[in-house]
């Protein structure tokens, strides 16, 4: 089944072959994303950006992706000024938006909002984050970065570090890595361990997952270190947060034991998890990861709206 006209709500909606197709298209989009080539594939198409929760990078990268391919966007960026504030249901809002544009990108504070939107919309819906739920395009650009660095996603050893409990990006990523047969090592403070149900779903899918307390031990033979932000509000007090944040902080010392080809990823924005001294090392791939947001979203929009990618 092709991607044309499809909703992308959860990474689970995509088969492994479809993810491969998207990543290959994203690689071809890089010269267009960087402005070296001019794209026209989405001329005359209008994308609705419906953001009911603040976001800068996700909204701007979708907007940029659309414009790089000659398309245009209309935007709800301040739900306070929209009819939602007057008590309109999301279902009604989405029905209206689907009459305006050719596809809808939705970010919403409630889990399941994008799935609901997809059931009422005549046009494809792309989930750009629903509460603590799914954020599939973030996962696609995580995968694109790993694939660019290693040429493959199969057989990689990926360490997932930090807030594995509340970090939605980690749950989607783990699911995708399971599809590609990567090995995962989980490293987190006890109160931020991967939820039992996510772990169970990974086991269900036959994924190779282990837990490790010591970061330096987990890093042995690892290809990728995926770091997430630990939020202060998840901890009892500032002192406990400082102690734990410090023990999981990634710096050049920690990376000294790693393979020279190890790459460090982070969905950004980072706070204290990665020391700035790492930025200058060949391990730092998080800015590259952020810059792939545009070509990955170009590939997705192009395939969903036209069924092909230049």
């Amino acid at each position: 089944m092709g991607l044309k006209g499809r909703d992308v709500i959860s990474i689970r909606d995509l088969a492994r072959e479809e993810i491969d197709e998207l990543l290959a298209a994203a690689r071809r989009m890089i010269p267009y994303a960087e402005g070296r080539k001019r794209g026209h594939a989405l001329e005359d198409q209008i994308l609705v950006l419906a953001f009911f929760e603040p976001s800068t990078r996700t909204r701007l990268s979708f907007d940029t992706a659309m414009q790089r391919l000659g398309g245009r966007c209309v935007t709800i960026a301040d739900p306070g000024s929209s009819s939602i504030r007057k008590g309109e249901s999301l279902s009604d809002t989405v029905r209206m938006l689907s009459a305006y544009g050719d596809a809808i990108v939705l970010r919403h504070p409630n889990e399941g909002a994008a799935r609901l939107a997809a059931t009422v919309s005549d046009r494809p819906v792309i989930n750009a984050g629903d509460g603590a739920g799914q954020h599939p395009t973030q996962t696609l650009l995580d995968l694109a970065t790993m694939q660019e660095a290693f040429g493959t996603l199969s057989g990689l050893k990926v360490v997932l570090l930090g807030d594995l409990r509340f970090g939605r990006t980690v749950h989607s990523l783990a699911h995708a890595l399971a599809l590609f047969g990567s090995q995962m090592v989980l490293v987190s403070p006890p109160q931020l361990r991967l939820p039992e149900e996510v772990r169970e779903q990974l086991d269900h899918a036959g994924a190779k997952v282990e837990e490790e307390e010591q970061l330096h031990r987990a890093l042995r033979d690892a290809d990728v270190l995926y770091v997430t932000r630990m939020q202060r509000e998840r901890f009892g007090d500032d002192l406990e947060f400082a102690r734990i944040a410090d023990s999981y902080r990634v710096d050049t010392n920690v990376l000294a034991a790693a393979k020279s080809r190890l790459i460090v990823l982070h969905p950004l924005p980072r706070t204290v998890e990665i020391a700035p001294e790492v930025d200058g090392t060949p391990h730092a791939a998080y800015f590259r990861q952020a810059s792939l947001a545009v070509p990955v979203r170009m590939a997705l929009l192009s395939l969903i709206l036209t069924g092909k990618a230049p």
Binding site: S89, S91, N110, E111, G112, R115, L116, D130
Partner: peptide
């Protein structure tokens, strides 16, 4: 009903 209080089905949608 869904036990997740933040699930969209618990937020007054006609669904």
């Amino acid at each position: 009903r869904c036990p997740n209080p933040n699930c969209i089905t618990n937020h007054g949608e006609p669904v």
